[in-house]
């Protein structure tokens, strides 16, 4: 029987693939058997990391599948014998979880154990994942901190979100920099279906969790309020009081330019020290809110409620 040329090629390719496969498999087996240095060897040079490892949940043998039940340090960092034999040299295939390494590879390392966690089922939806952020950018098993965070909030988040830090430093802000609130009270860094990774389906639902008095429902509604708090407010910080995106009366006049006072120009002449003979109480102090305080909604009577002044 004549052997076709294509069969020879096919047979050669199959044999080559089989050899490659077996080589990889045997390498893996060999790794399992021979290439691990052991935690005591790691400790000899990395005492501080070892101490913090003991403080972390990774060291608890009671947790099934934990590094403590397998190869300890090398469960995450990979086999370290070559690293030891080369006197701690880099480039031996260990994973340092530093910025230079591929984020997907680092994520995969963590998710290999944490894929069954209730914390990360929607990690694929997270902007962090899409933007190449990996678990180890925020977490480290050697930080000694709660949840293995590398830094406390909000400084951890400000490492990347410098623009948000600039907003939080403005005079009107939530008490983040005072340490009385955390970014993760509103945002889920591990992803979800809410806008901007917030821990709610809508912005208003999130805000009402703490500001339940704004929830209403009110007899007299202010539609932009009912639709989205962010129409008038910026959540991270503002130069204007009450986290407003602009300042009354100009904020209100952006939409309310009807006859009578909403459309009136209020200038320096209408301020306390100005010489105007009318209209001052529409700009001084809190502007429109001097009268229309109930802008989030009202149950007041008749037009007093309709125009949010009772």
């Amino acid at each position: 029987m004549k052997i076709k040329k294509i069969d020879v090629w096919f047979f050669s390719l199959f044999t080559f693939s089989l050899l490659v496969f077996l080589t990889v498999i045997f390498q893996q087996i060999a790794v399992a058997d021979d290439d691990y240095a052991g935690i005591d060897v790691c400790r000899a040079c990395h005492q501080k990391n070892y101490d913090n490892y003991l403080k972390s949940s990774h060291s608890k043998a009671a947790i099934p599948g934990n590094p403590a039940n397998s190869n300890a340090c090398e469960s995450c960092h990979g086999p370290g014998l070559a690293h030891v034999q080369k006197a701690g040299a880099k480039g031996t295939g260990m994973i340092a979880f530093d910025k230079k390494e591929n984020p997907e590879m680092k994520q995969a390392r963590c998710l290999a154990c944490h894929h069954d966690s209730r914390i990360v089922p929607f990690w694929d939806l997270s902007r962090h994942k899409i933007n190449g952020v990996s678990c180890s950018d925020c977490h480290s098993g050697h930080s000694g901190m709660k949840n293995n965070l590398k830094k406390a909030e909000p400084e951890l988040c400000f490492t990347c979100h410098a623009s948000i830090r600039a907003q939080v430093n403005k005079q009107s802000h939530h008490p983040l920099k005072e340490g009385l609130m955390k970014c993760t009270q509103c945002h889920d860094p591990h992803g979800g279906s809410g806008p901007k990774m917030v821990k709610a389906d809508t912005v208003n639902e999130l805000c009402f969790q703490c500001h339940a008095e704004k929830r209403g429902p009110y007899m007299w509604e202010h539609p932009p309020v009912a639709e989205n708090c962010l129409t008038c407010h910026v959540p991270h910080g503002s130069n204007h009081g009450k986290l407003l995106s602009s300042k009354p009366p100009l904020l209100c006049q952006s939409c309310h330019d009807a006859t009578r006072h909403p459309g009136t120009i209020y200038t320096r002449f209408e301020t306390f020290s100005g010489s105007a003979t009318s209209g001052k109480n529409r700009i001084i102090a809190r502007g429109c809110l001097n009268c229309h305080t109930n802008i989030h909604g009202s149950n007041g009577p008749s037009v007093r409620g309709q125009y949010f002044i009772r």
Partner: peptide, 27 residues
Amino acid sequence: YNDAQYDGYQYVPATTGTNGAYLTGAY
């Protein structure tokens, strides 16, 4: 802090009309 809405603050700018207000010093 310096703001036109609070410069020259008065608790009672006037007691009648559209200049009128009874304020309390808030902010």
